[in-house]
Design a protein around this nucleic acid. Structure first.
Lengths: 172, 172
DNA sequence: CATATTTATTAAACCAGTTTAATTAGAATC
DNA sequence: GATTCTAATTAAACTGGTTTAATAAATATG
């Protein structure tokens, strides 16, 4: 069991539910026990997949959560899921009360930061084909649980583009 | 003065110095008081600019710092700089001793995480031209202190590519 | 100041993606 | 099982970058 999870509330989420929609304020922090939630951003009317949160990850729409401003994103349940939820005020109480959990929070943030930094690294240093292959290798289960056009979006491609890459690869 | 900086040691760095080179272990955490340090990664022999750390930012090569493995990157002083330095062991002592500073550390990490997340957002949702214009708007001083080919690298372009974008823009 | 070196631009050929539209394949529903 | 709907592939034209190489501009050095 992840450290500190005893302060969270367990919830089950049905596929298709929106955890967050644009305009909403974000009061909760989540831990994905089992399932999948997809994070979408909207920019100039275009919706893109930014992240898939699967088993074992902490998540929320962090920027509006922290700044207490309305979200500009979606968080959509892509698969029936079990999550643990804690409100921001409860989380703060826990942190106030426990230096150890505050440290755990800091280290978790550090880990999340590194993940993102390495992702930027990949985006900048690898071709789309290489990033597709790497995703296939590192998170093979995604390809079972999520349609390909969402993965294309996550990789920053159109469905057509990803299809071309797959074809190119199959001919080798 | 940034919170906690009293535990750091002030240092001046000459342009051209490497703060970190591939193979080195990273024992220190930095705060840039005044100046500029450039973070480079190497991937398949190709060196790319990942970040410019300028006035007011905390930085180090975080992944090898945390994991205590050799760095695969460069951190090069791009401009005579004044930084504040704290060793990892000293930082940990400070955190052990002060819940408030531990919290400051957590919140700083949170901020850094969000910055990176939004950067991924920009990379995915904006064209190179838009990202160039945004950089020009948000960090205009970079263009005074750093040569254009490094900015091209930072934007994920070749010098030729950036030059084309600039030309395209000047003809409007 | 003249020269050497580094940085930025331009040109030409090329390529990995895009867009749009048509087609095929697969899943869900009656 | 036939129909409808959604997802994936293919084709064709296009585009914003790349690479390589030459040139021009800016900067540093003797």
């Amino acid at each position: 069991m992840e450290f500190g999870l005893q302060f969270y509330k367990k919830e089950t989420l049905k596929k298709g539910k929106f955890l967050v929609q644009p305009g909403q304020y974000i009061r909760d922090f989540y831990f994905m026990k089992k399932g999948c939630v997809t994070f979408y951003t909207i920019e100039e009317g275009i919706t893109r997949v930014m992240e898939f949160y699967t088993d074992g990850s902490f998540f929320t729409d962090l920027y509006p959560y922290i700044e207490e401003i309305p979200s500009e994103s979606y968080l959509k349940v892509t698969e029936d899921s079990i999550v643990y939820v804690i409100s921001k005020s409860d989380a703060l109480k826990v942190f106030d009360h426990s230096h150890a959990l505050e440290r755990f929070g800091r280290l978790s943030m550090q880990k999340a930061f590194i993940n993102n930094f390495q992702r930027i690294n990949r985006i900048k240093n690898l071709s789309n084909q290489e990033r597709y292959l790497q995703l296939l290798e590192k998170r093979p289960s995604l390809f079972q649980r999520v349609p390909q056009y969402l993965i294309a979006s996550y990789l920053g491609l159109t469905p057509v583009g990803l299809s071309k890459i797959r074809k190119r690869l199959s001919k080798q």
